[in-house]
Nucleic acid binder design. Structure first.
Lengths: 210, 210
DNA sequence: GTCTATATGAAGATAGAC
DNA sequence: GTCTATCTTCATATAGAC
């Protein structure tokens, strides 16, 4: 069975046509949401016929799941870029919060989040993939940072993972919710910085070294 | 033009048929999401014909918006029940957090939130209605509580509204996200209490009177 | 106002030629 | 593998009788 080039559909991460279709799917799903997005439009956007589309993905569900997976891997890569200034704990926390919320406020991240949240009851797997690649990975990274800071004696954090969740939840807070629900085009720049500063101070009041 | 009983459709909060239809719409939308929910099923669930349904609501969009509005008013009423123990600040914060997160973890609240978040780009009004009736009202109440505590000298809170957002965001945190994304059937009872305690302590470290 | 029956259109999925 | 053309299904919305 050498040279079996039939190629299993899905997950064909090298095939350029598949990539092309995934990119189109991402764009259409993000713009229209899962339900209203039609396979017809996705095919046209990708510049292929529907038959070709169905040759690469078994159906709308599979295409959607593949797109979410690819997008989550992309997000993971973004969040992987570390290099926090570990010498100044205050500056490092501000940096973490800023980087995190900047990414979350992206139209693309918002759109993906909206669809995943909505479709999770019908595709439990999608919710899991998203959580592992997104929030869970981020929380792990922040927890590691807090743990290292604890080892250096800069912080006193008995439960790094829980503390990371507190910090991230607090930073995300109301500003994100307003954006998610379509209120206000964007928060003023200064307001965001003041919010982050307030969260860092609250966090350090408890976990900072006395 | 006396005795004009034609009755404008929508917002007919006394008409029993309309209530019946709204209840059916709520059930079907919650179970299936906006897209997959069919007007046919909603009519059958309500025990009326489709023609009757369209006599009361101009279309699927209007029915959905009316349902969300009604549900938000209901949520507001729930969140209105106050009576915090203002003598013990620690106990009061725990009580606020517990009541809040219990409500959020409800299957019904989760489902409504999922749909509102997903459909907000297409119905900006729905996002605004939800925010005003839900999160905004809650944050206002918590801020008022913090302000009163500040006036009594129990807390030192320069910006009550921002502090309320920090507290609520922190409490909500990771546990809620896991539920929202369908991971874990439900958090262990003890774990939730420990989480709330940790948030209250973190909050009081900064805002508590020294 | 309410029902039964139907028009109309769109979307997911496929058959067959190249 | 890829395209054009089509099939089937189903959902929104309405017409007409009571």
């Amino acid at each position: 069975m050498a040279e079996q080039s039939a190629a299993a559909p899905e997950a064909d991460s090298v095939n350029p046509k598949a990539q092309q279709i995934l990119a189109a799917a991402r764009q259409v799903f993000i713009e229209q949401g899962y339900g209203p997005a039609s396979m017809d439009l996705i095919a046209r956007t990708a510049g292929v016929s529907k038959a070709t589309l169905y040759a690469h993905f078994t159906g709308k569900d599979a295409l959607f799941a593949a797109m979410v997976g690819a997008e989550c891997r992309r997000m993971s890569a973004v969040l992987e870029t570390p290099a926090f200034d570990e010498s100044d704990i205050r500056a490092a926390l501000r940096q973490i919060a800023g980087q995190f919320i900047d990414h979350l406020m992206t139209g693309r991240a918002l759109a993906i989040y909206r669809i995943v949240v909505a479709e999770t009851p019908r595709f439990p797997e999608v919710g899991r993939i998203f959580f592992e690649a997104g929030p869970n990975r981020l929380l792990g990274r922040v927890a590691d940072f807090l743990r290292r800071a604890g080892e250096r004696g800069v912080l006193t954090v008995p439960a790094p993972r829980a503390a990371a969740a507190q910090f991230i939840g607090m930073v995300r807070g109301e500003i994100y919710l307003r954006r998610l629900l379509g209120l206000e085009p964007a928060a003023a720049e200064g307001e965001l910085d003041r919010h982050i500063d307030a969260c860092v101070e609250l966090f350090l009041s408890h976990y900072g070294r006395r």
